[in-house]
Simulated scan of single mutants.
Amino acid sequence: MTRDRNTQHPRTARDEARRAYGQNFLTDPDAVARVVRAARPGPADLLVEVGAGKGALTEALAPRCRELISYEIDRHLVPGLRERLAAYPRARVVHQDFLTAVPPREPFALVGNVPYARTAEIVGWALAARRLTSATFLTQLEYARKRTGDFGHWSLLTVRTWPEVEWRLCGRVERTAFRPVPKVHGGILRLIRRPRPLLADPDQRAAYAHLVELGYSGVGGSLHASLRRACPARRLSAAFGRAGIGRDVVVARVSPGQWVTLVRELTAGSAPNR
């Protein structure tokens, strides 16, 4: 047992766990309902929950799906969770670090109020899970806005994955909806895996991946200057025009939809210098 510097009160094992795992429990019923609505669970769905915490979101999800698997790393919380879910035989609490879990072999949706410090790792896990149909995360608001273009610019991760995954911002959650109250507000981030990629042709997908990485390299300042290293000038300018992209635009200002149009134009079977 250690002592808190500000209060001089001893910190319990429970306090230490909360600090170690970055726990801010969602307690506001309206916020819970908003996350559930965004996740859109159905009676035939297999749901996996990241970090069940004290179970407010878990209990709201359990009656709305076929099966719920909730991961919780904190051993102090597991008995209370299992007691809270006793009325739902198809809900299971697993005492394990979610990031060490093996994704289900059948289609599943992911939901969770994620620890802010582990958001990138959890999103990476979701993107790598090939049977994932959707992921609905309560994250730091700034992260959710950044990944969905809400600041007016787009991150490399979002653009890189856009042909297969749609990123949506589904709302803001006030920081007072959590206990303890964090310093920042939350955002509801939803990832939806497309049934079919926007670029169905393997050559187009390869070209998209190559050009996106080249564009985000930053060489030349503007996106047009960066892509000139791989594309003839006249053809590139024509494709920019069809995609609605100015020649002086920096890469972060180009939306994923514009990227898809740009690559389709550049990979069309026409002469390089049309």
Rank of each mutant, 00 (worst) to 15 (best):
L132M: 15
R14P: 00
R193H: 09
Q96H: 14
G186I: 10
S70P: 04
A225K: 13
P103I: 12
R66Q: 12
N6V: 05
V184M: 05
H76T: 06
F108S: 13
L46A: 01
T27K: 12
A117F: 00
A271L: 01
T2G: 07
Q96N: 12
D150N: 13
L61F: 05
D203V: 07
E164I: 01
G53S: 11
L236T: 02
R193D: 06
A33Y: 02
G187S: 09
L211Y: 02
I73R: 08
V159K: 11
L68W: 09
M1W: 04
K183C: 03
A56H: 14
G22L: 13
R34G: 09
H185M: 06
K146Q: 08
Y208A: 07
G51I: 03
S270K: 12
Y116L: 04
E164C: 04
D28C: 01
D45K: 01
E166L: 15
E16S: 12
L223Q: 05
P29E: 09
F137H: 13
R193C: 07
A230Y: 03
C170L: 05
L26C: 07
A20H: 14
R175N: 01
H76M: 04
D74W: 06
R190M: 08
T136D: 02
I245D: 02
E213N: 09
S226C: 07
V36T: 02
S134Q: 01
A271G: 05
E265A: 11
H9K: 15
A128R: 15
L156W: 10
R75M: 00
T176Y: 09
V50S: 03
F108I: 10
Y21F: 13
D15H: 15
A129T: 02
T119H: 10
R229F: 02
Q204N: 04
P272I: 01
D45R: 04
S155P: 01
P10T: 14
